[in-house]
Amino acid sequence: MTETVPFGYQDIDPAEKQGRVGGIFSNVAAKYDIMNDVMSGGMHRLWKDRFVRRVKPRSGEDILDMAGGTGDIAFRMVKSGANVTVADINQDMLDVGIERAVDQGEDRLVWSCQDAEKLKFPDRSFDAYTIVFGIRNVTYIDKALAEAHRVLRYGGRFFCMEFASTEWPVFGEVYDAYSHHLMPRLGQMIAGDADSYRYLAESIRRFPKPPVFEQMIRDAGFVSTKVEQILGGAVNIHSGWKA
């Protein structure tokens, strides 16, 4: 059988996924931050604040924010005095982040176009690796996790925040209806792109359940893994350490 990987509800050739996902984020880059506010009712800001509190960035340490795109997480972490590198495979997303940094007078961030599955950084380059709402879009999650482990120093920490299907019964039904029907309509109204937001909703359903993903993190070599659920598991903060 020919190998396939998930792309929303479709199964496609692995060689196609990176380009198709790249096209989606190029399409939505300019409106990405506005859509995050609209789709979450502003709650994504609270989730990201909570995430950064868990990371506990410290002055002088080196942090890689993978799939950092427009810089939402990096802008929060750099306030600690940490040396933050924002990496993303999509230059259009990075360009939006760079423009935001210029507007805010923030010149401490490093911006780098990188493939999460094939990072160009040397082994043991960072004290922490973060990835927020990005790992479900890579072609091979296990390769991205292996690269995260490789570029971390011993004692380094891994933090990932990602969506999943909620375990709250009533809320789960509302959440499914919202994400499958209303989210694409909002995408069309605000960003002029329903298909990209339909994919983003579908990709959540295809992402491994939290216990399965936690095992993948352990399989990549991380220890002391944990999962912190938000909204009954609709959003999860995963963490682990490189021993």
Rank of each mutant, 00 (worst) to 15 (best):
F7D: 15
Y9V: 12
K17R: 11
G23F: 12
I24R: 14
N27K: 13
A29K: 03
A29M: 08
D33G: 08
I34A: 15
M35K: 10
N36L: 07
V38R: 11
S40F: 11
M43D: 08
R45S: 03
D49Y: 10
R50D: 02
F51M: 09
V52E: 00
V55A: 01
E61G: 01
D65C: 04
D65A: 05
M66Y: 04
A67H: 06
G68S: 12
G69F: 07
D72T: 11
D72N: 12
I73V: 07
V78N: 04
A87N: 04
N90L: 10
N90G: 07
M93D: 06
D103T: 08
D103G: 02
D107Q: 05
S112Y: 04
E117N: 08
L119P: 01
D123L: 02
D123Q: 03
S125L: 03
F126D: 00
D127L: 03
N137A: 06
K143M: 06
K143C: 05
E147S: 13
R150N: 02
V151M: 00
G156C: 04
R157A: 13
R157F: 09
F158I: 11
F159M: 07
F159K: 04
E167G: 05
P169K: 00
P169T: 00
V170M: 15
A177S: 14
A177L: 15
S179R: 13
S179Y: 08
H181N: 05
M189D: 10
I190E: 13
I190P: 14
D195A: 15
E202H: 11
S203E: 11
I204W: 10
R205W: 13
R205M: 14
Q215V: 13
M216A: 11
S224T: 11
I230W: 00
G232R: 05
G232P: 04
